[in-house]
Structure formats: structure tokens, C-alpha cells
């Protein structure tokens, strides 16, 4: 076996999640035929990776959302890796953004960080359970801004 390119492209969590979900469906459709023998390794890694990914924000994303997110990120001049971080983690606090963006103190002002948090929260869907837990706070913040 020969490795031509050990890093041909980076994949977002969503892409891997989609690939694995489709593969799982496909294998379920084909049923318990004789070909599935010897695929325990694939089944194990598929199950464990899906279990991990389904708890991350990527399970609620879609190609349209990812595209919209990347378009709105264009003017912010972040690197590919940084955008991937934001997409995979959906940061909600300034301290998280500072972790994911290199030298954020020099590159981003406080307003820009606030703006990033807003975009992330608006474009990427959050956990519905968590959203429901704190709807009162959100309304108060929005009301304050309008006045």
C-alpha cells in the first residue's frame, strides 16, 4: 500500500457524519447478507464515531447551512482551519473564540469577537434542548438591543 497524499483535504465533522449515516443506511438496506462478514472493524468504528459526532453541533447542520456560514465568514479573513474550528465547535463565548483563532487579541477587536459569536449563533443551529432552557434571557438581550 502506498500513501500518495497524507493530507489531501480537511473534512468537517458534518461531512464525516453525513458519510457515515449514509453508509449505515446503505448497509441496513442491503440487509444481513453474506457480504457483511469480516466487517466488524468497520461496524465498530462507524458506531463509535457516529455516537461521538451525534453529540456535536454537526448533527444539526446541512450543506446549505455550511455554505451560508462560509459565505458570511468571508469578510472576516480567518484561515481555513479557524473556520473549520468554528463550524465544528459552534463557540458561544469569547473565551472559546480566542482559543480557536490564533493571536486573536491582535487580529480581532472585542466588537469583532461579539460579531463572530452572533453569526455563529444565528447561522448554525444550536441544541434545541439548551435553547429552550434559556429563552427568557435571549428575549431580554434582543429587546435591549432594539431600544
Amino acid at each position: 500500500m502506498e500513501v500518495k497524499n497524507a493530507n489531501a483535504a480537511m473534512l468537517s465533522n458534518y461531512e464525516v457524519f453525513k458519510l457515515l449515516t449514509d453508509l449505515k443506511e446503505q448497509r441496513k438496506d442491503s440487509g444481513k447478507n453474506k457480504h457483511s462478514a469480516g466487517q466488524q472493524n468497520l461496524n465498530t468504528i462507524m458506531y463509535e464515531t457516529l455516537k461521538h459526532l451525534s453529540k456535536t453541533p454537526c448533527s444539526r447542520q446541512s450543506p446549505e447551512i455550511v455554505k451560508e456560514f462560509l459565505t458570511t465568514m468571508m469578510p472576516h479573513k480567518l484561515t481555513k482551519a479557524e473556520k473549520l474550528h468554528l463550524l465544528n465547535h459552534r463557540p458561544q463565548t469569547a473565551v472559546e473564540i480566542q482559543l480557536m483563532v490564533e493571536e486573536s487579541e491582535e487580529r480581532l477587536s472585542e466588537e469583532q469577537i461579539e460579531e463572530l459569536i452572533h453569526i455563529v449563533a444565528d447561522v448554525l443551529p444550536g441544541d434545541p434542548e439548551q435553547e429552550n432552557a434559556a429563552p427568557a434571557d435571549a428575549e431580554m438581550v434582543e429587546g435591549g438591543e432594539q431600544s
Binding site: M1, V3, K4, A6, L11, V16, N88
Partner: peptide
């Protein structure tokens, strides 16, 4: 976290799988 890796390998298909794609 995940990357795509380009690889080349020679795969051996036993005769009893010849009827498959």
C-alpha cells in the same frame, strides 16, 4: 479533526466475489 488521504493499493478479489460489482 478528520482528513482525506489519497492512497494506492492492489486489491485481491477472490473468485466467489466475481458476480458482484
Amino acid at each position: 479533526m478528520f482528513v482525506l488521504v489519497e492512497m494506492v493499493d492492489t486489491v485481491r478479489i477472490p473468485p466467489w466475489n466475481f458476480q458482484r460489482q
